[in-house]
Amino acid sequence: MRIGIMGGTFDPIHIGHMLAAEAAYDTYRLDRVWFMPSHIPPHKQGAGVAGEERLQMVKEAVQSHSAFEAIDHEIRRGGVSYTFQTIRELQALHSGAEFYFIIGADMVNFLPHWEHIEELAQRLIFIGVRRPGYELALDELPAFLHDRVMLADMPVVDISSTDIRERIAAGHSVRYMVPDRVYEYITRGSMYEI
């Protein structure tokens, strides 16, 4: 079983996340893609809404794709969400699975700074999804990462969760920037409004 893991804050999940996951799924013929909201991301100050709400938005977003699934592993564990710890636990729970971690192009160049990156690189393959505005310097990565990062291309969409939160706070529409069911969930809960 080839399982892609799409980790992130998903605050909120948007079509860019969905396109990245689909690009990795299609390019590398993954069997499943698990969307896993972080509890507390190590590289950000925190999320705008609680983990359970972010998890519910992810569930709404992936509902129509038979190979996509929302998992609550990091939300349930709590604390800072370090990928190496999560992968250790997931591999113990799913001993036959081959894991791929899907990241945006902006994170590829940052990989050498991840906690326990050498161990993590031995445990899985990273799929770096090319996004607009980010140059990848794969040849500048440490040698142990050279054959542990594969690339996938996605359509050019320049959307960020930060932009979506700011648009909502300013009273602007985010319809079509997020999946329809996520838009409905955000609207029902009046999320991100000032």
Rank of each mutant, 00 (worst) to 15 (best):
Leu90Glu: 00
His39Asn: 14
Gln85Val: 14
Ile3Met: 02
Ala24Pro: 04
Gly128Thr: 06
Tyr100Asp: 06
Ala92Cys: 02
Tyr25Arg: 15
Ile102Glu: 10
Asp72Phe: 06
Ser66Val: 01
Glu184Arg: 15
Arg181Gln: 13
Phe10Tyr: 07
His73Cys: 04
Gly78Glu: 01
Ala137Cys: 09
Ile117Met: 04
Ile127Thr: 08
Ile75Asn: 06
Glu22Met: 09
Ala92Asn: 12
Phe84Cys: 13
Glu53Ile: 13
Tyr100Ala: 00
Ala24Lys: 04
His94Leu: 07
Tyr176Glu: 07
Gly96Arg: 11
Leu93Thr: 10
Val174Ile: 15
Ala21Lys: 12
His39Asp: 07
Ile125Ser: 00
Trp34Ser: 01
Pro42Ser: 04
Met1Cys: 02
Tyr100Cys: 04
Thr27Asn: 06
Val49Cys: 10
Phe101Glu: 10
Met107His: 04
Ala143Leu: 08
Ala92Arg: 12
Arg188Gly: 00
Pro42Met: 00
Phe68Pro: 03
His14Ile: 10
Gly78His: 07
Ile5Ala: 10
His113Ala: 12
Pro142Ile: 01
Ala70Pro: 07
Arg77His: 12
Glu60Val: 00
Asp158Gln: 14
Asp26Ala: 11
Glu135Asp: 13
Asp180Val: 12
Met6His: 06
Ile127Arg: 15
Tyr185Trp: 13
Val108Asp: 06
Ile168Asp: 09
Gly104His: 00
Gly133Leu: 01
Ala105Thr: 10
Leu19His: 08
Val129Ile: 13
Lys59Tyr: 07
Ala97Tyr: 10
Tyr28Phe: 15
Gly78Ser: 01
Lys59His: 06
Leu138Thr: 00
Tyr100Thr: 02
Ile164Tyr: 07
Ile194Gln: 05
Gly7Arg: 09
His94Cys: 01
Asp180Ile: 05
Asn109Gln: 13
Arg165His: 06
Leu19Cys: 11
Ile164Trp: 05
Ile87Val: 08
Arg29Gln: 11
Val80Lys: 13
Glu118His: 03
Arg175Tyr: 08
Arg77Phe: 01
Val129Ser: 10
Ala47Val: 05
Glu118Leu: 01
Met36Asn: 10
Pro41Asn: 10
Glu193Thr: 15
Phe101Thr: 08
Val58Ile: 02
Asp11Trp: 03
Asp11Glu: 02
Ala121Thr: 13
Thr162Ser: 15
Ala170Met: 13
Glu184Phe: 00
Ser38Ala: 15
Tyr25Val: 01
Gly16Glu: 12
Leu124Pro: 07
Arg130Lys: 15
Leu19Tyr: 09
His146Tyr: 07
Leu93Phe: 12
His116Ile: 02
Gly96Leu: 01
Ser173Met: 08
Arg165Ile: 05
Ala50Arg: 11
